[in-house]
Design a protein around this nucleic acid. Structure first.
Lengths: 215, 215
DNA sequence: GCGCGATTCAAATGGGCATTTGAAATGTTT
DNA sequence: AAACATTTCAAATGCCCATTTGAATCGCGC
């Protein structure tokens, strides 16, 4: 029999949904408590304050998502292109999935827009390892002879594709009729293929530019 | 001799700086008034309310920027690649310029993160025309035979590159040590060349994918 | 220099929201 | 079942900020 969820658990789960949907600042403590069926004082009792609850939500969503969408297994060394392709596919899959894990990209989307005070520490703790490995794969693909700055820029360009896809997708969901919306999301796999092509094509063109210029 | 600026002008100018630096929600009316050397009630007297001042700031920055960074002249039809390259270069130049016009990308960056209520109408009024022309150029380059959805996605991918570059650049300036920062901005022109290469390379790879798949 | 509309000013007003408080309810130990 | 700790509760409290107000001041035609 399912042990019924404690107030603390209900708070985290309600909060993860609402924070992801509306961002840190737009969600009120009252709202979370109501969604969790708890009293207004519950957040402060169980978590001290709102920002601490937010941190716990990150923990919760990251654990969830690391389990469902682990990084590609290591063919970084042997075939960086394949690794990067798989990385993108996995990200896009998560963005468009319907279960709880899709809340993580949602939350990241919010956090990107209006970084909270905890931003840096959260980033360092949860995102840095992935960041390093993507960097490594890109260097494998377009190096050697690429400078640190060129690598950083290529990395930024590469990441911007799926991050922005996420932005567009979130905009779709909030029904806001604004720029950078996505087309109706027919088939995520097909969409992923196109983004993959753009990303790899871009990286290879970058490599060519660097090598020809260098000569 | 310079006629001295009216309170209204001082408000708009102070506001354009502060809104661009901190975003709509994080800037207080009091702050703007102080920077403009005006009384706390000045904003409401001259503009009715904060949101209206914000709208005027958009007008102001768009007019400024349209004068300094007009869209490339029309070789869209004849050479879309060259047009797109020039478009990117011009954007990047504006992002890294030091005069007042760089506040526009800054403001757009903020607006993207936390859209205000006016977002859609502002977008429609100021950004839509450019949007249409970029779309047209991309279609020239990778069409024909590209579906509406494929075009939208390619457009999104294309735009994401310099928009995200802007994000990274803004992060640099706010001294926040977080992800997606740019390397120290040595030479914007060189940087622009690399982004150009990535963008065009990505679009061409997209074209190839679509054509081969279609066959 | 008088009168009057336009502007500026300092001091309220009021709403939204996180957090506190102290009392009530519930659970646990012996 | 008495004593104690944990958890819930409704009602404050206090802060921040946009906006209002009504009185003072300015600018200018006459």
């Amino acid at each position: 029999m399912g042990k019924k969820r404690t107030t603390k658990e209900r708070l985290i789960q309600a909060a993860s949904q609402i924070f992801a949907e509306k961002g840190y600042r737009d969600t009120t403590v009252a709202e979370i408590c109501e969604a969790a069926g708890a009293n207004i004082a519950a957040v402060n009792y169980h978590f001290g304050d709102k920002s601490n609850l937010y941190r716990q939500v990150w923990e919760y969503l990251f654990a969830l998502s690391a389990a469902e969408y682990p990084l590609p297994t290591d063919l970084i060394e042997t075939d960086p292109e394949a690794w990067l392709r798989q990385f993108i596919r996995s990200r896009i899959e998560q963005i468009f999935c319907t279960g709880t894990p899709h809340r993580l990209p949602q939350l990241l989307h919010r956090e990107m827009g209006e970084p909270t005070e905890m931003h840096e520490s959260l980033f360092e703790k949860h995102l840095l390892p992935t960041h390093e490995r993507v960097s490594q794969a890109i260097r494998q693909l377009i190096g050697p002879g690429v400078s640190e700055n060129q690598l950083k820029l290529a990395h930024l360009n590469f990441m911007s594709l799926h991050i922005f896809l996420n932005v567009g997708h979130q905009k779709n969901k909030t029904s806001c009729q604004c720029r950078h919306r996505l087309p109706s999301t027919e088939n995520p796999a097909e969409l992923a293929r196109q983004v993959e092509a753009f990303a790899i094509g871009g990286l290879l063109a970058t490599r060519d530019l660097i090598h020809n210029t260098g000569k």
